[in-house]
């Protein structure tokens, strides 16, 4: 089979799997962006891609793609090292034309692989895998949003993820046009075009990825903004709360939070933290602006 025996065949496998993985990253990145804006929407996607047969099948296929890509990378590199011979040059002068990434694809690939293992542990293991296994986990398997919040509240993870994403970016700046080149869809003119298209495209995708850890860690994600702001609102006068929400560009609707229930006072709050009956509010969740308005109305 030429795909396994010939050098070009093996590289075609690398290219096709690589391009498929770029496509996957594109989808993944788009989904990630959803988490920046809406917890509900994001968790809906998580639920959709939970332990359903089609999601599991796709995951298996994806895993196979990755495995192929990795295995062939190692086979090719092994052959290449052997072809290079045992004698190394005493002096080497890298031509300017040669991109750094192109000569370090395997190293970058290994960084990507390690990052991937961590990433799977952080998310997939608790989500799809746990669900398949029927394990009880907190947050719930479908609460992807919760896992994002949990993971990226810790700066160590954020740093690791940023490095990881950078490695992927480097890997792809070369990988994208290189894949096209290997498939033969290139030439004098298209080579230049593919490189620009590749770098632009990959940069956009990677920025989508980068946004999640960074914005969750700095708590600047719009989807977080409201939850956070309403939490603060609970101790504020109404106008203060509204101002804070407005500053954070929250919509009124988004500022809604769960109603406070006070068993002891028939469920009526007088003020935040205080039941109408004047007793201290026993509810653990914060009272909301909406709630307050209702009670005042």
């Amino acid at each position: 089979m030429w795909l396994c025996n010939s050098s070009i065949g093996k590289k075609v496998i690398m290219s096709v799997t690589g391009l498929a993985l770029i496509l996957f990253l594109t989808f993944h990145g788009c989904m990630n962006v959803v988490a920046l804006f809406s917890k509900e929407a994001y968790n809906t996607i998580c639920e959709l891609l939970g332990a359903n047969w089609y999601a599991v099948a796709a995951t298996v296929a994806l895993g196979a793609l990755c495995a192929l890509h990795f295995v062939y990378a190692f086979i090719l590199t092994f052959q290449n090292r052997r072809a290079r011979g045992s004698n190394r040059y005493a002096v080497t002068d890298k031509p300017e034309k040669v991109e750094w990434a192109s000569q370090n694809m395997l190293v970058l690939g290994i960084i990507v692989l390690l990052g991937l293992l961590l990433h799977l542990y952080n998310f997939w293991y608790n989500m799809m895998f746990a669900e398949l296994m029927g394990w009880e986990v907190t947050p719930a398997p479908a609460d992807g949003f919760g896992y994002i919040q949990q993971t990226f509240s810790c700066w160590v993870y954020v740093v690791i993820y940023v490095i990881w994403l950078l490695a992927i970016w480097f890997h792809l700046t070369h990988g994208f046009w290189s894949a096209i080149q290997t498939l033969g869809w290139s030439g004098h003119i298209w080579f230049k075009r593919w490189r620009i298209i590749g770098i632009t495209y990959v940069t956009i995708v990677m920025l989508m990825f980068l946004a999640v850890p960074v914005m969750f860690f700095t708590k600047t994600a719009p989807s977080l903004c409201c939850a956070q702001q309403t939490e603060q609102c609970c101790g504020m006068e109404q106008h203060e709360c509204e101002k804070a929400c407005a500053d954070a560009a929250c919509t009124d609707e988004a500022c809604a939070c769960d109603p406070c229930t006070c068993d002891s006072c028939d469920g009526n709050c007088k003020l935040e933290g205080q039941c109408e009956c004047g007793e201290a509010c026993p509810c653990e969740g914060p009272c909301t602006c909406q709630d307050k308005k209702d009670s005042e109305g």
């Binding site: 050098s7 090719l76 052959q79 031509p95 300017e96 034309k97 040669v98 694809m105 046009w177 290997t182």
Partner: peptide, 11 residues
């Protein structure tokens, strides 16, 4: 060896 498109050759 296998080509990894480093472009060192054309340089």
């Amino acid at each position: 060896g296998n080509c990894t498109n480093t472009r060192a050759c054309e340089a």
